[in-house]
Design a protein around this nucleic acid. Sequence first.
DNA 1: CTAATGTCTTTTATCGTGAAAAAACAGTTT
DNA 2: AAACTGTTTTTTCACGATAAAAGACATTAG
Lengths: 306, 306
Amino acid sequence: MSKSNNVYKDAYNRGLRLLDETKSLPSEPELGVLLGVSRTTIRTILARMEETGLITWNKRSKTVLRVPRPDDFFPEEETDTLSQIIERSFMRRLLAGGAEPGMQINELELAREIGVGTTSVREFLIRFSRFGLIEKRRNSHWVLKGFTRAFALELTEIREMFELRSAAAFAALPEDSPVWADLDLLEDEHRLLAREIATRFNEFSELDERFHRLIHRASHNRFIVDFYDVIAMIFHYHYQWNKAQERERNEVAVAEHLAYIAALKSRDPDKVDAACRKHLKSARHTLLTSIPEGQQRPDRAALPQQ
Amino acid sequence: MSKSNNVYKDAYNRGLRLLDETKSLPSEPELGVLLGVSRTTIRTILARMEETGLITWNKRSKTVLRVPRPDDFFPEEETDTLSQIIERSFMRRLLAGGAEPGMQINELELAREIGVGTTSVREFLIRFSRFGLIEKRRNSHWVLKGFTRAFALELTEIREMFELRSAAAFAALPEDSPVWADLDLLEDEHRLLAREIATRFNEFSELDERFHRLIHRASHNRFIVDFYDVIAMIFHYHYQWNKAQERERNEVAVAEHLAYIAALKSRDPDKVDAACRKHLKSARHTLLTSIPEGQQRPDRAALPQQ
DNA sequence: CTAATGTCTTTTATCGTGAAAAAACAGTTT
DNA sequence: AAACTGTTTTTTCACGATAAAAGACATTAG
């Protein structure tokens, strides 16, 4: 097997959703833009849609015959990229048992365990190395540095430096900058979420990321913007296994965000600084409490089953 | 060809230098540590040294027969790693003509041009991407962002943030920290270089890197320490083609370093901050003047021949 | 004559393979 | 018995090959 056709499968699934809305599909290039794939892939999708009786396809006419059924969709797990698969497996091992700092990482073993080629694992590890959790020994194995308290402290130190600067830059943006509209929209979403926090608290982490990325973008500095990938990655996996007081934590965070947004809108540097610091402080605290000193890794039992 | 034996060749060359100093070589594991390679490689080296009549080798006895001649060494170019070769080729293209921002990078073409496999090029590009000069389009080509004025400004912004913080941390280090001895040694080297700047000015860039890395290490933050790789890389290639006023620039920088060192030794935060800022300001100025606005890329004629 | 479709070419993503290098194991020497 | 040498196994590094996906070119429809 050379390369899985997950791009096609994923685009196909997304394409199915278009059938609900219209009676006939647009042109091939247009569909390509819509689904973010090349025309080659679009044509493969259309061919299958015709085959399964979803549409008739003749040159420019693509008429919808029926609405898609659940079994028309490809299974979710077949739509993942290889690197997503590898990342998930790797993170599971890292957060699960036996991942002591200093431990060595074996490319071949990882590849065999996940059932992929070594090349993909190597490429993943190289990409992953920028997160500062692993390190390469020249001509030899990788070493796990571990998701330790030191790591969390170093990460948050940079985060705070970058976010304070970005927030200040944000507040200094001219009135007519489009970011203010983006901020208004995010504010609305926050208010909505705050009202329904009891049931929708697990939707916070996605909103959190969008909010902070908007702020970081105001720095106009690629290194700052890119660094948010590190934070997002850590928080993503951190949230997955640390579900303790999730509702309460997120409720507090939403309130802090709203205060932060208000400060930004006031455009008063001191208020922005204070609101930003306050939120970052509690974010750091949350992260740190999940990595108790002495007991470096979480309890196996606390891990999400999957 | 599967894998070049450059590790062996490089270690062999370094091993030859040991023959000048002693009449008999140490044990295999000891040699391994000395040359930074495995015992397997050491044994290959010893086998060749025996073959070419440099030593006699029988179990524990490794007697030196003669001093190595220039032709005993492997040619320099055979000792480079593949990634060094790829990096050099890539940077030459980048700094030479036709590297306009927005241009797309073709893995296959690069691989063919350099004469290596695509895998190595891919891995290089992934590693290189953290420098912020290129960006990947999913399932498609890489895009060159270019060595522009914006890049230089973003880079120096982070550098200044990080170095000011590291310098402050450095000055706050306890008296008995070993870094003070390291700093003294570097100070001596600076004084020596300052005295002979007329002839040795080109040795500055190596000293510069060691000095700044020492300071950054005081931050005890892996992200700050790692970021110096970006700076070092840029300065390395920048120095290669921008030779204008090299002597003068380095003379100024040495003086600034000495003032900076004195400030650190005073342990006065304000003095440290001032000296650090002053040096960073002229470093930024030097970098920026070499990337003139409008004329984004350097003149072909200004490139180093190689 | 513009914008689509039909067809062909190139590039990317991934694997299996094999040599270089590391690492593990076993047997010797002091 | 500690540290070395000899031998075998495992892992890393790099390549060529191949299917998926992108992209380019040619043709046709409106």
